[in-house]
Design a protein around this nucleic acid. Sequence first.
DNA 1: GATGACATACCGACTGGTTAGTCTGCTGGG
DNA 2: CCCAGCAGACTAACCAGTCGGTATGTCATC
Lengths: 197, 197
Amino acid sequence: MARTTDGNDAPVPQRLLAAATRLFAEQGYDRTSVQEIVEAAGVTKGALYHYFGSKEDLLQEVYSRVLRLQQERLDAFADAQAPVEQRLRDAAADVVVTTIENLDDAAIFFRSMHHLSPEKNKQVRVERRRYHERFRALVEEGQRSGVFSTATPADLVVDYHFGSVHHLSTWYRPDGPLSQQEVADHLADLLLRALRP
Amino acid sequence: MARTTDGNDAPVPQRLLAAATRLFAEQGYDRTSVQEIVEAAGVTKGALYHYFGSKEDLLQEVYSRVLRLQQERLDAFADAQAPVEQRLRDAAADVVVTTIENLDDAAIFFRSMHHLSPEKNKQVRVERRRYHERFRALVEEGQRSGVFSTATPADLVVDYHFGSVHHLSTWYRPDGPLSQQEVADHLADLLLRALRP
DNA sequence: GATGACATACCGACTGGTTAGTCTGCTGGG
DNA sequence: CCCAGCAGACTAACCAGTCGGTATGTCATC
């Protein structure tokens, strides 16, 4: 056996990232010391600084992982063959489900953005903007074709929906009365109902 | 003249609170040192610890100020003499306006809650819950009387709306294309449209 | 209306504790 | 033999909160 220490068997970088994600979500980025992270991962600082350049790099890894995942999923739904109201509903519900499935990442994402250095923050904003615009394009498509109301600017509609997604990490509890899918259906429904002409 | 030093003329405790609010919103609670706060307020640590028991007390003051203000305003709108759909719309739009007017407080509120000690956090949660329930009662009243759809549980409707309010501090810019009132009207409109039977 | 007792408001040097990141060195597999 | 992979002691910086000190004001007493 190659494994002598405790903890799980994943490679060290993944263990570090998993530990950091959990701790950042629980205590916040600044309240989590590098020492805590390496202890939770069952290694020492030497290992962390062997794989990551800084504590901040860990945070950025969390961000890129989330952004990549969400963008891929959105693209898949937006490119599907279906009426635009169906594509928007699917995309809107899916982002709720994946956000709930990765609630730790979501909590970190929305609470700790200002802890990234200016240039990394800028990069994250750029990627987020791409995501936002893809989503907005769906709304605009529906508005142009007349299936959605044009009463509200598409930008604001997108922010409205993402506000509720963003907010999930504040109130959603897995042991609550609603399942992930139920919440997703309700939130997608609210969006589509608000967009009825 | 009684004033010898620079800075504005407000009493020291208010100056400290104002400086802390701005700095907490800009840099986050943990990133802001007590030294920075007292320098921004034009005093020294002695003054701060003369009026406040701890750095955390400053944060809690921000919270109580926001909560008190929002609750007062909600109560006023909810108790008004008007059809329920009008009362809900007014309340929904008003919370958007006051949130935008105090965007710093809002940013702190949603980002720094986990920096409060457990007991203070609990107290904030209790007050927030009261607010949430007052708002939910409005939705339920409309649902019972048939002017709002019952497709979505009232709790979720409230969280949907407050998600968008919460989110404002992320995207709203005073120099953007929409005025406070326009944003408020649009968001209230989206809520009411989503609730149409 | 001088004197002393006490309080309020604030100053700023200091302390004890914590932290991110560094650096030297060990170890086992190729 | 060599080096990726990692250990862990160490450093330099920072920070919340403390504490003894000062300046100013207020009130009672003689």
